Amino acid sequence: MGAEWCPEDPSDDSGRTRYGGLNRACFGLLPRHLAEVLVAIPTEHIFLPTDVRADQARRPQPYLALPGRGKRPDFMASIDILEGIQVRSFEGTQSSDTIYLVIGPFKCIDNDPLIAREGEYLVETEACKSAHAEPRLYKWSPKGSLRDVTREYLPKPAMTQAEQALTAPFMPYLETTKLDHAPVMRWTIPLKDASPTSRADAYDDDPVPMPDWVPETKRLGNGLHLGFVVWNGKSFELRQRAPRALWPLPNCDLLRPDVRCRENDRARVEHQDPFVDKDSSRQPRRMTR
C-alpha cells in the first residue's frame, strides 16, 4: 500500500508496535480515500481549517489495513493534529455503502464552564477555542459531497427512565478501542456519584453501588452495558452480545500477533466480559429495542 514502514517481526517490541494509538500500524502516506475524507469535512463541523488538514494528509501517518466487507480492506488511521484525529472506513458490500467514522474536535466546549478540560483540543479558531473529541459518521453523496450521517446510521441505545435517573447527569459513551481490530463499538454508561461531597478522600467519579433492580443483562462492572454497535456491510446493528473475534483481549489480535498476548496471561482473567462469547463461532443476537 506504499507504506514507508510496517512491523514484520511479531517479537518486535521496539516501541513502534503501537504507533499513533494503533496496534502494529504501518507508517506512510494515507490511503487516498481516507485523505479525501479528512480534507472534505466541513470546517464548521471540525473547527480545523481545510489547509491544516490537507497539509497533514500530505505527510506520513500511521494506519492499518483491516478485513472488511468490500472489495478493498477497511482502513484506520491516526492523524497527527493536536490531540490526534482518527479516521476509519467501513467498506460496504457496494462501494456506495461505505461509511467513514471520524473521531476529532467536533464538540465545542467554550460555553460550558462545567465541562472538564481534560483531553481538550485547543483549536483556537474564531468559531471555537476549545473542543472535545466526538465520533461522527460521514458518507459520500451521489453528487460527490461528504454528508454527516451520524443520526441516520449510528443506532442509539435504549434506556429506561429508571436507568436514566440512575446514571444522570452522564450520557452514554461510545467505546471505540477495538476499532483497530474489528468493525465494532460499544455503548456503555458509568454509575458515578456526581453530587457535591465534603469528604477529603472522595472523588467526583467514585462509583455508586449497583442497585439490585438492574438486570444482569445490563451489569458491566461499575456501569451499564448498552449494546455493541456492529457494521454489517450496509448499516450498523445494535447487538446484546459479541463473539471474542469481534471483541478481542488486549494485544491478542490473531491477524497482528503480539508477544504480549499469552495463553495464561493475567489479562484473560482481568478482562473477562459477561457479554463476550468465548466461542467465536456463536452468532451474536441482535439487541431488542
Rank of each mutant, 00 (worst) to 15 (best):
P196N: 12
D279S: 07
S235V: 08
P7M: 06
S89K: 00
L254D: 15
Y63E: 00
A165M: 12
Y100G: 07
D204G: 11
P155M: 08
R117V: 09
C261H: 10
S11Y: 08
V276Q: 00
V229T: 03
V208E: 06
R53Q: 10
P62E: 01
Q283E: 11
D279F: 10
V229I: 05
R32L: 14
P274A: 00
L114E: 15
D55C: 11
D180H: 07
A57F: 05
V149D: 08
M171Y: 09
D80E: 12
W213K: 09
L66T: 00
R260V: 03
E118D: 14
Q272M: 09
E83L: 04
F170E: 13
N111E: 10
E44T: 07
G68Y: 10
R268Y: 15
V37L: 10
R32M: 13
C6W: 09
E44P: 02
T160Q: 10
L255Q: 11
M171T: 12
T197C: 14
V39G: 11
T50H: 06
D193K: 10
P257L: 03
F228A: 04
P172N: 07
M185S: 05
T197W: 13
K278G: 08
D80N: 10
E124K: 07
P62N: 03
T17S: 12
P257Q: 05
F236Q: 01
A133L: 07
E8S: 13
K156D: 12
A162V: 08
D55Y: 14
D51A: 09
S141V: 08
I46R: 00
R18A: 10
N23T: 09
F106E: 00
V37R: 08
P49F: 11
W5F: 14
S89D: 02
F275C: 05
G70C: 01
I103H: 06
A77R: 01
R147E: 15
S235C: 06
R136W: 13
P215Y: 04
A245S: 15
A127L: 14
P183A: 05
A242I: 04
V214N: 01
I81C: 08
D277K: 03
R239Y: 15
P211V: 04
M1R: 05
E8H: 10
A158Q: 14
L29Y: 12
R58I: 01
F170H: 12
Q283F: 04
A65F: 00
